[in-house]
Each structure stands twice: as structure tokens, then as C-alpha cells.
Design a protein around this nucleic acid. Structure first.
Length: 407
DNA sequence: CCTCCACAGGAAGCGCAGGAGT
DNA sequence: ACTCCTGCGCTTCCTGTGGAGG
């Protein structure tokens, strides 16, 4: 068979026109139910067009409430408008995800890339890097709008003093000017900040409320019109995706993911209509992906810890204390003759696993029995064994357990 | 009220990789 | 070729602590 035949067949979807309209990073021409925030942010940033520095903005709300989308939308519009009219000072915009770029070095490097300044990705001192960014801005005379996305995770990791440094850079980059748009999922973040940062970053605040189910329906319908073929969706599919997203703190991203995955599942089944059942399957498939990805991306020793948790749960013990977990870890490491980490390090790995939502851990005091964590697995042991069964180092053990488990 | 268990988690620092400047 | 710098993963050493049993 000819390859182009296969490609043609694969191309001729009975479901999608173009699924990329459902991707979370796609910014549509209109953002329903975010007009207030768009206008608010637009009014603040508009001063850049007349050559004066916009106030810093602090945008906060739960995940999937459109913060990043609005920031992109408004800054795109701003750049577009400024290219049409004559602005006194050129404008540059850089979006930095501070969860992916979670060191001061990397944030500064991203800021450099936003003004076409080439810097090595390691090797310089932070002070040197900062000096380079500043001197580049000095020679350029621009208004630089820096969007710091997911700023809460950066602060959690490296503290808020770096944020203070950034907000103060503005004083050293004359004649250029810099504005910060801070975006956070942590609604209480602003209360816990150093008051000096609060006063400089809190010039303007924009709150993003959770989407209600009806609002999510509007968003989904808008995207579905361009993403799906007419009549490819059963009537209750969009309301159902919206309802799930609304239940999970009004999360538009979640709803869109569900809709896209449901479409893909229906397509793979060879159907020409997406039904509620496909959404149900999509939900499970997304959950599974999330967990499998999370497990596969762990370091080796974290995987061993999870394996210990899974093994003891299979044996009927779903609660372990830290000591028991470490003993189990030691057992496996002896078995495979691996280099063991110290318990001090393991406590950090346990904390990390808890943050990843794979386990839960409560600090409990049992009086004379001592003070320890009670650790529970939050995932099906089967899923963990599945995810680890093709691990180069742990695969053999896992498959052995799997054999006993099935027998 | 005091003790003492079984850990938690802070502080400091080490070795390595990777890059800059010289 | 060398010295110096940082981030990262980790160890060493350490102090802190909620509450049942004494």
C-alpha cells in the first residue's frame, strides 16, 4: 500500500476539522467572559503606547481561569497596535514561565532572550548576568513588559527576594523602562509577600474568578465550532465537559483537554460522533497519563520509594511510617546492589512525592512512639507497577512482583 | 509536669558538570 | 590549559518537637 494512502485516510477525520484549536496555548480571537479583565489589563498597559511605563500588574486566580490567556491576548494586541501606529518608544514583551525557569539565573536568561541578548545557559554568575541584562536595556531605550507566569512556584523555590531585585531593576535601566505582570495560582500569595515587593508589584490587581459551568460551555462551544465537524458532538458532550471543569475549580484547561481527548478517542474507535461515554473514557485516560508521566519522570530513588509503597499496599498495608519506608528502600537497594541515599535526602524525596500528589503524608506524633509521618499511597499499586515495568533498572523486580501478584 | 521516642528539617558544604574569561 | 563561577544532587551534622507514658 502507498504511504500517501495511509496519510490521506488518517487525514480524513470524521470528527475533527482542526484539533489544534482545542490546545490550551491557542489564543482565540475572543475570550468569552473575560472582557472585564482584558479591559482592565488593556487600560493599564495602554500607557506604553504613549511612551510611559505601565504600572506593574498582579493577576491572580485558580488554574485554568484564563490569566495567562488574557495576558497573552492583551500583550499581543498591544504589540500589534504599536506596529501600526507610531509609538514614541518601542515595546517588547516576554512571557516567562517561572515554574519551568525556576532559578534566578534562568529567569534572567529568559529576560535576556526577550530582548535578543544572547547569554550562555550556565557559567556566568547571577550578578554578571543581571549586569548584562541591565546594560543591554540601557543601550536600547524600550518599554519592556515582562510577564512572570506561575510566580508562586518560583517564590516557593527561591524566595521572594529575587522578585524584589527584579522589580528594582527598573531604577537602573534608564532610558528603558520595565513593567512586571505577575501571574499566580496561589490566591493568598500576595498576603505572604515581603511588604516591599507587595508595594511595588501590587500597583494594580486583577482577580480572575473561577468559570461557572455555563461560561465554560460558551468557551467550549466557541472552540468546538472551529475544531469539530458539524454534528460531530452529541448534545450533552459540551455540557458534560463543562460540568467536570466547573467542579474542578472552574478550570477551562481541564474542560478543553477533556473535549479534545474525547474527540480523539471517538476518532480512534472509528465513530463519527463523540458521546458522553467518550468523555468518561477521556477523563480516565487523562488521569492515567498524568500519573504515568509523573512516575516516569521521577528520579530512580523516588521510584524505589514508590515501589516500596506499592508492594506493601499489595500486601494489605496501606499505611507506612517513614522508618518502615526507609527500611523497605534499604531492602530493595540491597537486593539490586544499588548505592543508597541518606535518610535526610529521602525525607526530601518523600516531600516531593507528596507535592506530586502520588502519596499523602501526615506528620503524626505518637507520644513515646515518636514523631513520624504516616504515608499513604494515593495511586493504584497496579498503575505504579505498570509505569515501572519497563524501567531499565527496576523492570525485573517489578515483573517479579507482578508475577506473584497475578498468581 | 517532665521525658524521651523517632523522626523532621535547617545549615553548611562537597563534588561534579558545564561554561566564561584569560 | 588554567582558574573561577553557578546550579544540582547529595551528605554531614545538627537542633527541634507533639504528646503518651512515666
Amino acid at each position: 500500500m502507498d504511504l500517501s494512502d495511509i496519510f490521506n485516510k488518517a487525514n480524513k477525520s470524521k470528527i475533527f476539522i482542526d484539533r489544534s484549536y482545542l490546545r490550551p496555548d491557542y489564543i482565540p480571537k475572543e475570550l468569552p467572559h473575560r472582557e472585564d479583565m482584558i479591559n482592565g489589563m488593556g487600560m493599564i498597559l495602554a500607557s506604553a503606547l504613549s511612551g510611559s511605563r505601565p504600572s506593574n500588574v498582579f493577576a491572580f486566580g485558580m488554574t485554568g481561569t484564563g490569566k495567562t490567556a488574557v495576558a497573552k491576548y492583551v500583550t499581543n494586541a498591544l504589540l500589534e497596535h504599536s506596529s501600526k501606529i507610531k509609538t514614541p518608544i518601542p515595546i517588547a514583551v516576554k512571557l516567562i514561565n517561572t515554574r519551568e525557569n525556576d532559578t534566578s539565573y534562568r529567569v534572567l536568561a529568559e529576560m535576556a532572550s526577550g530582548i535578543n541578548l544572547k547569554v550562555p545557559f550556565t557559567g556566568l554568575s547571577v550578578a554578571e548576568l543581571r549586569a548584562r541584562v541591565i546594560s543591554a536595556l540601557r543601550t536600547r531605550n524600550i518599554i519592556y513588559i515582562v510577564i512572570l507566569d506561575e510566580i508562586d512556584s518560583m517564590i516557593k523555590k527561591i524566595g521572594d527576594s529575587f522578585l524584589y531585585q527584579i522589580t528594582r531593576m527598573n531604577e537602573e535601566i534608564n532610558p528603558s523602562q520595565m513593567s512586571i505582570i505577575g501571574i499566580t495560582n496561589d490566591i493568598q500569595l500576595s498576603d505572604n509577600l515581603d511588604p516591599r515587593i507587595k508595594s511595588s508589584l501590587d500597583d494594580e490587581q486583577i482577580f480572575f474568578p473561577q468559570y461557572k459551568a455555563e461560561e465554560l460551555q460558551d468557551i467550549l462551544s466557541q472552540r468546538a465550532r472551529v475544531a469539530f465537524l458539524p454534528d460531530a458532538l452529541d448534545n450533552d458532550v459540551i455540557p458534560y465537559c463543562a460540568a467536570i471543569g466547573a467542579r474542578e475549580h472552574g478550570d477551562a484547561r481541564r474542560s478543553l483537554d477533556l473535549l479534545r481527548r474525547a474527540g480523539e478517542i471517538a476518532e480512534r474507535k472509528g465513530k463519527n460522533k463523540v458521546t458522553k461515554d467518550d468523555v468518561e473514557d477521556a477523563r480516565e485516560s487523562l488521569d492515567n497519563d498524568r500519573i504515568v508521566d509523573a512516575i516516569k519522570s521521577l528520579t530512580f530513588d523516588s521510584k524505589v520509594l514508590l515501589l516500596v509503597m506499592a508492594m506493601s499496599k499489595i500486601r494489605g498495608r496501606d499505611k507506612l511510617t517513614s522508618g518502615e519506608l526507609y527500611a523497605g528502600y534499604e531492602g530493595i537497594m540491597n537486593e539490586i546492589k544499588g548505592q543508597r541515599l541518606t535518610e535526610r535526602r529521602l525525607t526530601e524525596l518523600v516531600n516531593f512525592l507528596e507535592m506530586s500528589n502520588l502519596i499523602s503524608a501526615n506528620l503524626i506524633s505518637e507520644g513515646r512512639g515518636g514523631r513520624t509521618k504516616h504515608i499513604y499511597l494515593k495511586t493504584e499499586p497496579k498503575r505504579i507497577l505498570q509505569s515501572l515495568s519497563d524501567d531499565p533498572q527496576l523492570g525485573d523486580i517489578v515483573n517479579m512482583i507482578n508475577g506473584n501478584y497475578l498468581a
